[in-house]
Amino acid sequence: MAQPSSEKTPSVYLYIPNIIGYFRIIINFIAFAGSSTFGAVLDMVTDSMFLSGKTSHKDVKDTGNWLLKLYYGHRPFMAFCCVASEVLYIILFLFADEKSTSLLNTLTA
Rank of each mutant, 00 (worst) to 15 (best):
G34D: 13
I90Q: 03
I30A: 07
I25T: 04
N28T: 15
N105M: 14
A79Q: 11
L42Q: 09
K69H: 06
V41L: 04
V87W: 03
F38E: 14
A84H: 02
K8S: 04
F50Q: 01
F93T: 09
C82K: 15
H57T: 14
F50W: 04
M44Q: 14
L88W: 06
L92R: 13
V87D: 04
M49N: 15
V83W: 00
L42G: 05
F32M: 13
L94K: 09
A31S: 11
G34S: 11
L104D: 13
T46L: 14
L70T: 02
M49V: 15
L94R: 07
L107Y: 08
T108I: 13
N65E: 07
P76N: 00
S85Y: 07
L103T: 06
Y71K: 03
L68A: 02
I27P: 03
V12D: 03
K69E: 00
S6C: 10
F29R: 07
N65I: 11
L70M: 11
I16H: 15
Y72L: 02
T63L: 08
L51A: 14
T46F: 13
Y71G: 00
V83C: 03
L14V: 03
I19V: 12
V87M: 00
L67M: 06
Y15I: 10
A96M: 10
K54M: 04
P76D: 01
T55W: 15
F80G: 03
S35V: 11
A84M: 05
G64P: 01
A96R: 09
S5N: 01
H57Y: 13
E86G: 08
P76M: 00
M78P: 00
L107I: 09
C82G: 11
T46A: 10
L51C: 09
F32L: 15
I90F: 04
F80M: 10
T37H: 15
I25C: 05
A33I: 07
G64W: 03
S85M: 14
D97Q: 04
I20R: 05
E7G: 03
K58L: 13
L103W: 03
A96L: 05
L68C: 05
M78R: 02
F50A: 02
T55I: 15
C81N: 12
I19T: 06
D59L: 04
S48R: 08
I20T: 09
G21D: 01
A31N: 06
H74I: 14
F77M: 08
A79F: 12
P17R: 01
S48C: 14
F32Y: 10
A109S: 15
V83F: 05
S11R: 04
I27V: 12
A40Y: 07
T101G: 09
K61W: 11
F38N: 12
V45W: 04
A31K: 08
V45D: 09
L51D: 11
T37Y: 09
L70P: 01
S36R: 00
Y89N: 07
G34I: 12
F93K: 10
K99L: 06
L51F: 07
F77A: 06
T106W: 07
P10S: 05
D59E: 14
L14F: 05
L92V: 08
M78V: 01
E7Y: 05
F93D: 04
S36W: 00
S35R: 11
I30G: 04
Y22Q: 08
F77V: 06
P17G: 01
F95P: 00
L42I: 09
A33N: 08
A33W: 07
L67A: 10
A96G: 06
S11C: 09
K54E: 02
I90D: 05
M44E: 14
R24M: 10
W66M: 14
I19P: 01
N18C: 12
